[in-house]
Design a protein around this nucleic acid. Structure first.
Lengths: 228, 228
DNA sequence: AGGATAGGTGTACGGCGTACACCAGGTCAA
DNA sequence: TTGACCTGGTGTACGCCGTACACCTATCCT
């Protein structure tokens, strides 16, 4: 089958799903497609442009927005479906963070979310700040500061490591313990990522709702914070 | 002067400040230090470990926490001083995002922030979710989805680009316009990053305060969201 | 028929991280 | 004093990377 930009991008997405975005090289992708590395350059300008295309391919798969609902459930639904897509392709969040210019599909997605706030009666001003506050969460991901560390398999060694952690960072240890209690498993990562994501999302949406109800506006002079 | 881990790390931080973290290579760093590349490996295990050390070097420079204040101003002060440090070294946020395991200094920093919430009466449970909700913001940065794009210098071309943007992404264009109006300059990036950061921070802190006042707790069954 | 065009190929260059063998100088026990 | 050992800087080399550039071939349009 002949090569095409489509085929290159889809193969790249599939390969990145398996080996990750950093490990994906033009050479490996070419091999996957049974073609010489330089052949790819007839369809993508260079590696950066390839990654842009991969991002767009994935973002285009996010479920379409629902119409005719309130802004809050509408935004929630859209963000959570973005999240579902991102979870299927864990490399995308990193790729988006690394880009400097948003790709067209990302821009289109953002446009639709902005439109939801506007339709809900948010001022352009408030919407602007709200979008910044959502940050990457609007696209369904947060950068994980705490990627679940695989502890040592040996239980004795694990216990020793836990004791050491508790001594050096008591609060971190306590929090880890609280998380472990909360879900029944004694070891395990102890963090339900989906729960944490939705928790933060609701805190933000509730906060936005309150500001909107109060008719919040960014006053001059600059530097005024919300609701103080 | 003899090489040392200290000297290597400080040179690396300084070099990354100038050329960025991706462009920093073992070879360039060695050249900067007037030494052959392999000499560095007597002081750091490999490039990854070098970056870890660089992160720790910078994080260690974050201002010490204030004691004896309320949790809210205490957290605010700490996060904003972290932000000040991060702004001086723009590559650090990317570096932290890329790491999979938090470095000791980062862990120590997180420990101190967790301690502030706990001292403010937050349950370990709520604190846990709160820390997740803060995400990387607790370390003073957000990934910028909208890194200010340099428009074309030619005003006519810029206007054409703006018209094209408005046609394809009307809400994005409107928001950009609102931002531009808000600060007096007609062109310009139109986003006051510091304002946006503090806006999001206050929305989150206010949300946490409300949950805390209400004695919020993550109920079983899992999946309950806050405050609904 | 013949030139343009699109798309796959082969070779080559400069940069990267780092394994490995080496070697100079200092430290210290015998 | 001597010789073993360690610490830290050196030189060479390997395999990977992105991609510039010249090339070849099939197809299509006039």
């Amino acid at each position: 089958m002949a090569l095409s930009r489509e085929r290159v991008l889809h193969a790249a997405v599939a390969l990145a799903d398996v080996i990750g975005i950093e490990a994906l090289s033009m050479r490996k992708l070419a091999q996957e497609l049974g073609v010489v590395p330089m052949a790819l350059y007839k369809h993508v300008a260079n590696r950066d442009e390839l990654v842009d295309g991969m991002v767009d391919t994935v973002v285009a798969r996010i479920d379409a927005p629902e119409h005719g609902t309130d802004w809050k459930p509408a935004v929630r639904q859209r963000v959570l479906s973005a999240r579902r897509t991102m979870l299927r392709h864990p490399w995308v969040s990193r790729a988006i963070e690394t880009r400097q210019a948003p790709t067209p599909a990302v821009l289109g997605y953002l446009d639709s979310v902005i439109g939801m706030f506007r339709a809900g009666g948010f001022s352009a001003d408030l919407t602007h700040h709200v979008m910044h506050a959502m940050g990457s969460r609007v696209l369904g991901f947060t950068q994980e500061l705490f990627t679940a560390q695989e502890g040592p398999a040996d239980p004795a060694a694990a216990a020793a490591a836990a004791r050491e952690l508790a001594a050096a960072f008591p609060y971190v240890a306590e929090m880890a313990l609280a998380a472990a209690h909360e879900d029944a498993s004694i070891v395990g990562s102890g963090c339900d990522d989906q729960f944490e994501f939705e928790f933060a999302l609701e805190v933000l949406l509730d906060g936005f709702e309150r500001l909107h109800e109060r008719g919040w506006t960014s006053l001059s002079p600059r530097g005024s914070r919300p609701a103080r």
